[in-house]
Design a binder for these strands. Structure first.
Lengths: 204, 204
DNA sequence: CGCCAATTGAACACTCGTGTTCAATTGGCG
DNA sequence: CGCCAATTGAACACGAGTGTTCAATTGGCG
């Protein structure tokens, strides 16, 4: 992952936009060149192929989001509050940057870097919450729970992108439902899910 | 939706298989012809184009599943038991017929017929359960709940297809978590989610 | 100013897929 | 047996995209 020159940066940004809007298979070299404001020849001399470009873009997005969420979690110790906030961070960001949302919604499950972004932090938090008695579930269910959370967040992002719900509604609903599923009492689940949501820290 | 002659039936079956395995954009006419054991010319004289073929296949699948699930529900009045069974029907079937599972997982959200299959029955059951006091959620949350259920089932199907969990585990976990999210007491949620699951009735 | 690396954009040769046409073949049925 | 509709498979004419090459142009910098 060499650092990028200005032309490569423009290509990556344009690629991100096009992938988000159309999906990988609908983006060709000419589109990319035009979107980046660059000649076709320049594309070939700056990237290897679409596939590695996609991996690079997805990896960058995953790393950036993971870092910002982790940073925000430094000041939170309660696993349930972290989970409620994590869920809402993703949903709010999808609303604030619909290209980001569309990209996540399309590709979150399709490449390891993005899957990891979703479940990495959550896994340890779930286990912490379980051993501290905050959650009540059986440990064998961990994978099913992670899946429900990831899928649920993606579904909510879709809802928000389509305009069926606001990010606040979708975010707090999803967080509340997940917490209830994990054994948090309804009233507390609701409080955690509707608490003030901090600004996501900026990356380095 | 004219009824199909034998050649068309073979084409639809082959298309179903290929769509499930590769996704729509990776299936071309020649592949389809070979998979159906038919000449390329025969394809063109039996179907209009890939898109309408896909719609037909998806519509047929949705109608068949919807009918079978509805039939099974005739003998169940408890909305929570219906929901637990509905969730597990989908997950078990994905296991028993992995092509079916792959098809659903890829396309469940991409065409109206399949979306309807997922949420049609569930909507009325959720509202019944709410007004009968079986569930505790706020009515504005209905859409978020439907999304969580649909997404969760799809995620579980993926887990089962990948071999990360058995259908029994994924099915009962998902049903249990959803019921808990809806306010069913944990112990009862578990009982409903692990109850004997009837055979899915055959279509007409 | 003049150098040099990067960019430009046209031209090529290629692959793969679509959709059409059509003469020849097949096979089920009266 | 012979008819006729369906199937076959090859041949066409396209269009779209890939990846390469390269002479000409640009523009930042010493």
């Amino acid at each position: 992952m060499e650092s990028l020159n200005p032309t490569q940066r423009r290509l990556h940004q344009a690629a991100f936009r096009l992938f988000a809007e159309r999906g990988t298979s609908q983006v060709n070299i000419l589109d990319l060149a035009q979107a980046a404001g660059v000649a076709r020849g320049t594309v070939y001399s700056n990237i290897d192929n679409m596939e590695s470009l996609f991996e690079a873009v997805a990896g960058q997005l995953a790393a950036e989001m993971h870092e910002r969420v982790s940073k925000s979690f430094n000041s939170l110790s309660d696993p349930a509050q972290r989970l409620a906030n994590g869920i809402r961070f993703f949903i709010r960001r999808a609303h604030e940057d619909s290209q980001w949302g569309a990209f996540i919604h399309k590709f979150a499950m399709s490449t390891p870097a993005l899957r990891e972004m979703f479940s990495g932090q959550a896994t340890t938090d779930l286990l912490n919450g379980l051993s501290s008695g905050r959650y009540t579930f059986r440990q064998e269910q961990l994978l099913s729970i992670l899946t429900l959370i990831s899928s649920g967040v993606l579904g909510s992002i879709f809802l928000v992108l389509e305009g069926h719900r606001t990010w606040r509604e979708a975010g707090s609903d999803t967080a509340e439902l997940v917490l209830r599923a994990l054994g948090i009492p309804p009233q507390e689940a609701r409080a955690l899910a509707t608490s003030e949501l901090p600004v996501l820290p900026s990356p380095d």
